[in-house]
Amino acid sequence: MLTLTINGEDRQLDVAEDVPLLWVLRDVAGLTGTKFGCGVALCGACTIHLDGQPVRSCVMAAGGAVGRKITTIEAIGESDAGAKIQQAWLALEVVQCGYCQSGQIMSAAALLAANPQPSDADIDAAMSGNICRCGTYRRIRAAIKQAAAV
């Protein structure tokens, strides 16, 4: 039995410590906003925050998150940076299929929280690990800049 703090709530979960956090969130805790894309930290679809830092949950053993604050897409809008990012995403109509966007938003919210005025190079560095098959990259870049300007 693991106790994980997910979106501000302590959850008792009947799962082994070595199970990747992604599958604990999705299949055990029932939080499906965090997505499976590649399973090996190549695409960023599974990005969550651990104590505010962006982490690829598909390669993070759940046991490593014990005692730390897990934030997922379902609750990122409660943070200032997350709310700004989501608003900018809607204002600029970033989303197409939307499947990668949970991870994109989590990476962008972490960037904005750490760096309120990111440059293009900062955006490249923070966001190039997140693949979007629909090709929304230009709008993601513009939305991050818009969120930074709010």
Binding site: T34, G77, W89, E93, G98, Y99, Q101
Partner: peptide, 21 residues
């Protein structure tokens, strides 16, 4: 016009096939 499907998608609320429980 704003897309009808995006508000749920930016909040992780959209249920794709893989999310069925």
């Amino acid at each position: 016009q704003k897309r009808l499907d995006t508000p749920d998608k930016v909040r992780g609320k959209t249920v794709y096939g893989i999310d069925v429980q």
